[in-house]
Simulated assay, not measured.
Amino acid sequence: MLASVAIVPLNHMLRGESWARKRLQPCAGKTARFRVPPFFDLAVIIQPTGEVAAASTVAGNDAILTIMPALLPRLLVRDEAAYREIRISGDSVFGQEILEIGQNLRWDVEQDLSDVMGDILAHRVVRAGENLAHWHNETLNNLSRALTEYLTEEQPVLAKPTDMRTFANEVSGLQDQVSRLELRVEGLINKSL
């Protein structure tokens, strides 16, 4: 059941992106396993058309892509660094090809909605969704800044970055002074001997 829930939308996106299917066609017959421990474990086999199908549980895995759960939000917002943190075992060339396709595969939500509700309404729904996402990000950024300011200014639980730099510079200067003092003491000891 989980396989069909994941594979149907993936194939839908692949059908909308012929370049991705063309890149997958030479990999026909290869199996990739996607793991998000402990939540998700899905094996797919590449079809000659460039689409994917559920692989049997006994099939070998050409590539295993392990995604830690903490990476999922970053992958959803297409954080480039998150893709580099996905572990690939087995056929690394095949696994890297899948990652590159995944990075560039896009779902044309507006096109799918326009088939159901018309072009104008679909366009407005997508724009409203984008505006909502933008508002959400701005709200989180503002809340983060306000919380940081509160914890550094109002209730000083955290140190201010400028105070930390000053402290680090003072520690470094103190280390230099101690080193010079050690050299002087050694020089005085050597003179008295």
Rank of each mutant, 00 (worst) to 15 (best):
Leu72Lys: 01
Leu72Asn: 00
Leu72Ala: 03
Leu72Met: 05
Leu72Trp: 00
Arg74Met: 12
Arg74Thr: 12
Arg74Glu: 08
Arg74Ile: 07
Leu75Gly: 01
Leu76His: 03
Val77Glu: 10
Val77Phe: 04
Val77Ala: 05
Val77Asn: 02
Val77Lys: 12
Arg78Ala: 03
Arg78Val: 01
Asp79Arg: 11
Asp79Lys: 04
Asp79His: 05
Asp79Glu: 09
Glu80Met: 06
Glu80Ser: 11
Ala81Leu: 08
Ala81Glu: 14
Ala82Thr: 01
Ala82Gln: 10
Tyr83Asn: 07
Tyr83Phe: 15
Glu85Gln: 12
Glu85Lys: 12
Ile86Val: 15
Ile86Phe: 07
Ile88Gly: 00
Ile88Lys: 04
Ser89Ile: 14
Ser89Trp: 09
Ser89Gln: 10
Gly90Pro: 07
Asp91Arg: 06
Asp91Lys: 12
Asp91Leu: 06
Asp91Met: 14
Ser92Ile: 10
Ser92Phe: 09
Ser92Gln: 15
Ser92Asn: 12
Ser92Leu: 11
Ser92Met: 13
Val93Asn: 10
Phe94Ser: 02
Gly95Ala: 06
Gly95Arg: 05
Gly95Cys: 13
Gln96Ile: 05
Gln96Cys: 10
Gln96Tyr: 10
Glu97Ser: 10
Glu97Lys: 09
Ile98Ser: 03
Leu99Ser: 02
Leu99Ala: 04
Leu99Ile: 15
Leu99Gln: 09
Leu99Asp: 04
Leu99Pro: 03
Leu99Tyr: 06
Glu100Gly: 01
Glu100Ile: 11
Glu100Phe: 01
Ile101Met: 09
Gly102Cys: 12
Asn104Met: 06
Asn104Val: 02
Leu105Lys: 04
Leu105Tyr: 05
Leu105Glu: 02
Leu105Trp: 03
Arg106Lys: 15
Arg106Pro: 07
Arg106Trp: 13
Arg106Ala: 15
Trp107Cys: 14
Trp107Ala: 08
Trp107Gln: 07
Asp108His: 15
Asp108Leu: 06
Asp108Glu: 08
Val109Glu: 04
Val109Gly: 00
Glu110Ile: 06
Gln111Pro: 03
Gln111Tyr: 14
Gln111Cys: 07
Asp112Leu: 07
Asp112Met: 05
Asp112Gly: 07
Leu113Trp: 06
Leu113Ser: 03
Ser114Trp: 06
Ser114Val: 07
Ser114Phe: 10
Ser114Thr: 12
Asp115Arg: 15
Val116Ile: 14
Met117Tyr: 06
Met117Ala: 14
Met117Cys: 15
Gly118Asn: 11
Gly118Asp: 07
Gly118Gln: 09
Gly118Arg: 10
Asp119Asn: 11
Asp119Leu: 13
Asp119Trp: 14
Ile120Lys: 13
Ile120Gln: 11
Leu121Gly: 04
Leu121Asp: 13
Leu121Gln: 07
Leu121Cys: 10
Ala122Met: 04
Ala122Asp: 01
His123Pro: 04
His123Tyr: 03
His123Thr: 13
Val125Ser: 03
Val126Ala: 12
Val126Thr: 14
Val126Phe: 09
Arg127Asp: 14
Arg127Tyr: 15
Arg127Met: 15
Ala128Trp: 06
Ala128Lys: 08
Ala128Leu: 11
Ala128Glu: 13
